[in-house]
Design a protein around this nucleic acid. Structure first.
Length: 489
RNA sequence: CGGGGCGUGGCGCAGUCUGGUAGCGCAUCUGCUUUGGGAGCAGAGGGUCGUGGGUUCAAAUCCCGCCGCCCCGACCA
C-alpha cells in the first residue's frame, strides 16, 4: 500500500506537538488541554461546574481587531471577547464565556418567574402545523415562520412562539376553575426568519426566549396575573443592573388589549424613548413582594408616570414638562400582554366555573429576550476598553492577573489568592498565561469582569496585590486578606 | 422585500479599472532577547482568490448565472 502524503500529516503533527510539549512550550490560551480533574466517587451536581478557571486552559478566543461585519458595540465586543461565533445570518454559537453569561441571565429570569408563582416547563422547538392551523396562525404568520416537512411529508415548523402549544397542554388537563390560575413558562430557543437579522444576538433569527403564559377564569383574574409578571419583570431587569421602563405598547401580531413593553435605557438603543425622570429613582428591589397580595398599588405607581416610545410620543400631549422629561434611547427586552380568549377559544381551552357552566379561559403571555439581553446589557454597560459586566451576570466575578508568570514569588502569591478565592466560592478567572502585562490588562478589560486582582513582582515582594474595579477604574494596593474581603462582596 | 456594498490564509485589508509567478499587517509556529498597559530581531507554516460556467495562449482580475454576508429603509423580542 502506497503511503500518501496526506496519511503522513497527522503523524508529523503529533511529533511536532510532542516535541513542543517536552520543551514546555506554551500554547495559545484557548487551545491548551487541561489535565482532567479527578471525578469524585459520588459526584455532586452543582449549578456551575467551573467556578474557577485558568486562562491558559480556557477557550477564550479574543480578537484585537474588530470583525468587519459587526456594526454596533455589543456585537463587536461579543465577537472580540470570544463570546459568540456566527454560524449564518442571525444564528450564533455560544462559546464558553458567552454561554456563562447567557446561563446567568437565564437563571435570574428563572428565579424571578419562580418567585412570582410561575412554573417551569419545557416545550419542543419543533411543532406540528396542525396546532397552528387550529388557531388560524399557520396562514397568518407569514414567511417569518420557518416551515419544514418531516419524512412522512407532514407539515412542521420551528416554533417562533408557543401560545398554541401551551394552550393545548392546558386544555388536556385543566377542567375546573379550582385549578386556576395557572402560570407556566419555559426558556427555549425560538426561530423567526427575520427578513433582515442584524445587531448580533440583539436581533438574531434563532434566539433564546423566556415565554410565560397565564390562564385565568376571567378578566379580573387575568389582570392579577398580568400584575405579577409586571412586578417580576421590574425585579428581573433590576437584578441585571438595568434601568427598565415599562411603556404602553401595541400588542402586535399576537393581538390583545393590556400590553406593556419593557425598554432598558442605553445610549446606543434602537429607538427613542421619552419618560418621566422620576422613574430613575424607583428601585424595584427595595421591598419584598408578596405575590399573593394586592400588587395594584405598585403597578399603578409605575404606570402612573409618563413613558412612551418614539412612535407613541406626542410632545403636544406629553404631561411631563421641561427638565423633568427624560429623552433617551431604549432597547426592548420584555413584552407582556393580555389577549383574552384569542387562543383559548379556537383551541377550546375551557374550564367549568363555580356555576357549573363551561367558560373559556383568559390568557396572557409574557416574553423576555434572554439572548437579546446579553447584547442589551453590553449596550448599556461598556466603555472604550470593553465590556463592563454588572456583577449579577458577569461570567466570572474576579479576574486574577499574574503579571509575570515564571517569577517564583509572583506565581506563589497568585496561587495563594486563587486558592483562597476558590475557597470563598468566588468565581475567578486566573490569567496565568505567559503573555505581556499589556496584553493581559487589555484582555481583562475587554471581557469586563467586575474585579481585577493584579499581582506583580513589585507587589509580591511586599505581599501586596492591586485591586481594580472595572466599572469605576478605581485601583488600590492592599494585602491579600483585604483584597479578598473587598472582592468577595 | 426595495435600494446599496462586499466575498482574496484564523482576523483586518491591498491587488480587480489596465488579464501575465497571490501580497501586506495582526495572529500562529521555531530560536534568541525582552517583561507593570496589546514587545524586538531572525526564520517558518498556512490561501482550489465564495461557487458554476464562458472568453483567452493565460483569469483573483473580463462576461453570465448562482450562493453567502453586511449596510440603509419597511418589519420585529
Amino acid at each position: 500500500m502506497a503511503t500518501s502524503a496526506r496519511r503522513d500529516e497527522p503523524l508529523r503533527d503529533t511529533l511536532r506537538q510532542n516535541r513542543g510539549a517536552a520543551r514546555g512550550i506554551r500554547r495559545p490560551a484557548w487551545t491548551g488541554q487541561a489535565a482532567l480533574p479527578r471525578v469524585p466517587a459520588s459526584p455532586s451536581t452543582p449549578l456551575r461546574n467551573t467556578p474557577a478557571m485558568r486562562l491558559s486552559q480556557y477557550f477564550l478566543p479574543t480578537l484585537k481587531e474588530t470583525p468587519a461585519e459587526a456594526q454596533i458595540v455589543s456585537h463587536r465586543l461579543m465577537l472580540r471577547a470570544g463570546m459568540i461565533r456566527q454560524s449564518s445570518a442571525g444564528i450564533y454559537s455560544w462559546l464558553p464565556l458567552g454561554f456563562r453569561v447567557l446561563k446567568r441571565i437565564e437563571q435570574i429570569v428563572r428565579e424571578e418567574e419562580d418567585a412570582a408563582g410561575c412554573q417551569e416547563v419545557l416545550m419542543p422547538t419543533i411543532q406540528p402545523a396542525e396546532l397552528w392551523r387550529a388557531s388560524g396562525r399557520y396562514d397568518d404568520y407569514g414567511a417569518e415562520m420557518l416551515r419544514i416537512k418531516d419524512r412522512h411529508d407532514r407539515d412542521m415548523l420551528y416554533g417562533p412562539t408557543n401560545e398554541e402549544q401551551i394552550t393545548e397542554i392546558f386544555k388536556a388537563y385543566i377542567r375546573s376553575y379550582k385549578h386556576l390560575p395557572k402560570l407556566l413558562y419555559h426558556i427555549q430557543w425560538k426561530f423567526r426568519d427575520e427578513v433582515r437579522p442584524r445587531f448580533g444576538v440583539m436581533r438574531g433569527r434563532e434566539f433564546l426566549m423566556k415565554d410565560a403564559y397565564s390562564f385565568d377564569l376571567d378578566y379580573a383574574g387575568a389582570e392579577r396575573s398580568y400584575r405579577k409578571f409586571f412586578v417580576a419583570y421590574l425585579r428581573t431587569f433590576a437584578r441585571m443592573g438595568l434601568k427598565a421602563i415599562p411603556m404602553q405598547a401595541d400588542s402586535g401580531p399576537i393581538g390583545g388589549d393590556m400590553s406593556h413593553e419593557f425598554q432598558i435605557l442605553a445610549e446606543t438603543g434602537e429607538s427613542k424613548v421619552f419618560c418621566d425622570k422620576a422613574f430613575l429613582n424607583f428601585d424595584p428591589l427595595q421591598s419584598d413582594i408578596d405575590y399573593d397580595g394586592n400588587l395594584k398599588p405598585l403597578v399603578d405607581r409605575w404606570t402612573g408616570l409618563y413613558a412612551a416610545a418614539d412612535e407613541k410620543h406626542d410632545p403636544a400631549k406629553c404631561p411631563v414638562k421641561g427638565d423633568q422629561l427624560l429623552e433617551a434611547r431604549g432597547i426592548e427586552v420584555g413584552h407582556i400582554f393580555y389577549f383574552g380568549t384569542k387562543y383559548s377559544a379556537p383551541l377550546g381551552a375551557n374550564v367549568d366555573g363555580p356555576d357549573g357552566k363551561s367558560t373559556t379561559v383568559h390568557m396572557g403571555s409574557y416574553g423576555i429576550g434572554v439572548s437579546r439581553l446579553t447584547g442589551a446589557i453590553i449596550e448599556a454597560s461598556h466603555d472604550d476598553a470593553g465590556i463592563i459586566w454588572p456583577e449579577s451576570v458577569a461570567p466570572f466575578r474576579v479576574g486574577l492577573i499574574n503579571l509575570k508568570t515564571g517569577d517564583a514569588k509572583t506565581d506563589a502569591l497568585c496561587a495563594d489568592v486563587y486558592a483562597k478565592l476558590r475557597q470563598k466560592k468566588v468565581e475567578v478567572l486566573y490569567d496565568d498565561r505567559d503573555e505581556r502585562a499589556g496584553a493581559k490588562f487589555a484582555d481583562m478589560d475587554l471581557i469586563g469582569l467586575p474585579w481585577q486582582v493584579i499581582v506583580g513582582p513589585r507587589g509580591a515582594a511586599v505581599e501586596k496585590v492591586e485591586v481594580k474595579n472595572r466599572r469605576t477604574g478605581e485601583r488600590a494596593e492592599m494585602s491579600v486578606d483585604q483584597a479578598l474581603t473587598k472582592v468577595a462582596g
